[in-house]
Amino acid sequence: MPFDPADPAFLADPYPTFARLRAEAEVHPHPGLGIPVAVSHAACSAVLRRRDLGRIWADAEPADSFTAFNLLHRNSLLEREGPGHSRLRGLVAAAFGRGHTARLAPRVRRLAARLVDDLAARVADDGEADLLEHVAATLPVEVIAELLGVEGPERALLRGWSNTIVTMYEPDPGEDRRAAAEKASAEFVGALRELAAFRRRAPSDDLVSGLLAEASADGARLSSDELVGTAALLLMAGHEATVNVIGNGVLALLRRPDEWARLGPATAPTAVEELIRFDAPLQLFERTAVVDVEVAGFPVPAGTKIAALLGAAAHDPAVFAEPGRLDLDRNPNPHLGFGAGVHYCLGAPLARLEVAAALEALRERLPALTLAGEPPRRPDFVMRGLVCLPVTT
C-alpha cells in the first residue's frame, strides 16, 4: 500500500511520502482506498479537468440508513454532470453574480477584526488562547450563515452539522461517525427546508432568495431538494476548507517568523494562494470514469473511480520551484485547491476574502503572535486540519 491514511506519522507530514510516490509514477493503485491515486500536478489536473472523468454520485449504503445524507449529496451540483450540472451551476453562478461577495466584504473584514480582538483579549487574560476556536472556525461559519440568510438558533448549529457530516468523506469513518453524520444531515435538511419556505414568502438579499429569484426569472426548475443540496454544499465546502486554510496557514507562518513578519496588505493576495498550496485543506478529490480512459498511462475502466491527491499536486517540483518552501510572493501559483474544470469552486472569491481578512487582522492586531504549544492534527486524511491552534504573544 503506498501509504496508510490513518498513520499518525503520515498525517503529521504526508509530503515526503508524496514526493517518493511522484518519483516512482504519476498514478498508483491504492488497495487500502480501493481506488488509484494521482500524485503529479499533471495527472491530478487531468483527473479534475477531463470530461470523461465525472462526479457520479453513489448513495452511501445501506441507503435506507442514510436518507438525509444521500439527499444532500444527490441534489448537489458538485455531484452532477451534463445538463443537470449546467442548469444548477448556472443558477448558483447567477445568484452569486448578484454581488454577494462584494456585499459581504465590509462585514467579513469587521467580523475578522472583532474575532481577532476577542482572541487578543483572551490571550491577555489567560496567557494563551485557541486561534482555531476563536477565529478560524468562527469566521467562515458566520459568513456562510450571513450568505444563506440563516438566523436564530440554527446559526449556532451550522458549524457542528458541517464538522459532523464531512467525516463521511474519510476512508473509514466508523459506524459511530456514520450514524452521527446522518443525524446531522437530517437536522440540516429540516432547517434548510424551513429557511427555503420562509424565503419564498419573504425574499431578502441572501443567496437562498437569489437562487429562488434566478430560477423564477429563467423559468428554470429548482426543486426543494436541489435548493437544500446547494445550500448544504456551500456550508460544507465554504466552512471546512476556509477553517483549515486559516489554521494550517497560520501554523505555517508562525513556524517561519520571517514570513510572518512579511505578511501585510501588499503580500496578502499572493499569501492566500500560497497558504492554500503549501498545506492543502482538502487532500483528496474523486472522479469516476464515464468511459474507459487512461490517466498518465494508468488504465481507469468505465465506472471506476480515481482520486487526485491535491496535496501531492501542490508540491510537484515540475510546477512549483522549491515546493517545500513557503513563499508568500509565489506567482504564478497554479494550485488546484479550488478544483479545476467544470467543477471549479464558485465560492473561491468569498473564501479568498475570508482568509485575507483573517490574516490581515491577525498581523495588524497581534504582530507578536507566536505558538503557545505544538497543535495536534485531526486524525483525518481527506480534510487536513488541526484540533486546536494555541497561540500567545
Rank of each mutant, 00 (worst) to 15 (best):
E142D: 10
E151I: 04
A137R: 02
A105H: 15
V135L: 06
A113L: 00
R87P: 06
A156M: 12
A124R: 14
V150G: 11
P106S: 12
R122N: 13
I144V: 15
V143N: 03
V150N: 08
A156R: 11
A136Q: 02
R107H: 12
A136V: 07
R110I: 06
R107V: 14
G99F: 12
V141G: 08
V143A: 03
L147G: 05
A93M: 10
V135Y: 07
L139Y: 02
V92F: 12
P140T: 01
H134Y: 10
L158P: 03
R114E: 09
D118S: 07
L139N: 02
T138K: 11
L119Y: 02
A112R: 01
L131P: 01
F96H: 13
E142F: 09
V141C: 08
E133R: 03
A121E: 12
H100T: 12
A136I: 06
R87L: 11
R109T: 09
T101G: 13
A105L: 15
V123Q: 08
H134N: 03
A112F: 05
P106M: 14
A93D: 10
A124V: 11
V143K: 02
F96P: 10
E133N: 05
A129R: 06
A94V: 03
A93Y: 05
F96Q: 11
L111W: 00
A121H: 10
P153V: 13
A112Q: 01
R89Q: 06
A136M: 01
F96S: 08
L91H: 05
R159T: 04
A124S: 14
